[in-house]
Write a protein that binds this DNA or RNA. Structure first.
Length: 322
DNA sequence: CGGTTTTGACCTGCGC
DNA sequence: GCGCAGGTCAAAACCG
């Protein structure tokens, strides 16, 4: 225990402060947001930002994306100190549908049944399968950043070697198993590390039309489908759009330090209070993306388009927007 | 009143 | 096998 696992730190500290276009790190879309990804996606250079874009971003951008090929369940080897922030190693298994009970028993199961019962839930030899995760760091004074989805906090834990606790959130959509962890970097308290796990199976919450709503993504676009390599685009609207829309959950701090580009971003607007309009089309389509087909390029875009403008085909954007 | 947050307990995986 | 740290549960508290 001492030299113990700096699991997370390594990963984080190693992220280039500047985009490494030749490395798995890519996606530089904002100044203060570093995007890290744990997806098993196979982003190829072709999907990275174009040379032109690079020059545009390279300069001031501190945004970095890490796309890491996640072997099914790496993370346990030291060499793979949780590729991302998460550090998580044994996170959810979850076969999406049901709460994995993962800890299945987690909480306060009947003391009477030793653990057998609980264990039963989680088949023994069954190894947990990690859901694709995606993390990014954002300079912000608020921990929980708005992303268009509704989250319910289900836990908080103190993180070793960090004075800041880690919060666990779960998408409030009962059919959605996406989770997200939020923690503040111990090295840089101004940086919030958000890790998403899983893919939303629904649209983002639609915000008041007045605010222009959210860039809800509809992803059935056949053009985005790709045979067997279908990749569910997790938080597309999240990680791509976040930067421009992040908002504190409970209150928008005037000093909110998101630099996101300053001028963009007014698509996500709080519906007031802590509630949001739920106009989302329940059971919406799934977010599917095929890296091999659709060049993923992230470049600074005008306010109107937001980051999605370059990622999501117009036809795939918020169906409620128009 | 319904939904969310808080918080302590419990479970699991992993390293030693 | 043990201990640690991470992750999850669920009851209670809180809030709009």
């Amino acid at each position: 225990m001492d030299g113990d696992k700096d699991t997370r730190d390594p990963g984080l500290t190693e992220f280039p402060t500047e985009p490494s276009w030749d490395s798995p790190y890519f996606f530089s879309n904002d100044r203060d947001t570093t995007v890290l990804s744990e997806f098993g996606w196979n982003f190829s250079p072709d999907h990275q930002i174009g040379a032109d874009d690079r020059s545009d971003l390279a300069g001031s951008s501190t945004t970095t994306t890490l796309a890491e090929q996640l072997p099914e369940r790496s993370s346990n080897t030291n060499s793979d100190p949780a590729p991302v922030v998460g550090s998580v190693s044994s996170s959810s298994t979850e076969d999406p549908p049901e709460r994995s009970t993962g800890s299945g028993s987690g909480g306060t199961p009947p003391p009477e049944t030793p653990s057998s019962t609980t264990k039963v839930n989680k088949k023994k030899g069954q190894k947990r399968i990690r859901q694709p995760r995606f993390a990014f760091m954002t300079k912000s004074e608020v921990d929980h950043l708005e992303d268009g989805y509704r989250w319910r906090k289900y836990g908080q834990k103190a993180v070793k070697n960090s004075p800041y606790p880690r919060s666990y959130y779960r998408c409030t959509n009962s059919k959605c198993t996406v989770k997200k962890r939020v923690e503040r970097s111990s090295e840089d308290p101004t940086t919030v590390i958000t890790t998403y796990e899983g893919q939303h199976c629904h649209h983002t919450v639609a915000f008041p039309r007045g605010g222009g709503g959210v860039n809800i993504i509809s992803h059935d676009q056949s053009g985005f489908a790709a045979g067997s390599q279908l990749m569910q685009l997790p938080p597309v609207s999240q990680f791509m759009h976040y930067p421009t829309s992040i908002q504190p959950r409970s209150q928008i701090s005037p000093t909110h330090n998101l630099t996101v580009g300053g001028s963009q971003s007014h698509r996500l607007v709080r519906a007031g209070g802590t509630h949001y309009h739920h106009d989302q089309a329940a059971g919406g389509s799934q977010c599917i993306i095929n890296p091999n087909h659709e060049p993923l390029r992230v470049v600074p875009v005008p306010t109107d388009e937001g980051l999605l403008g370059d990622i999501v085909p117009p036809g795939m954007r918020n169906p409620f927007d128009g």
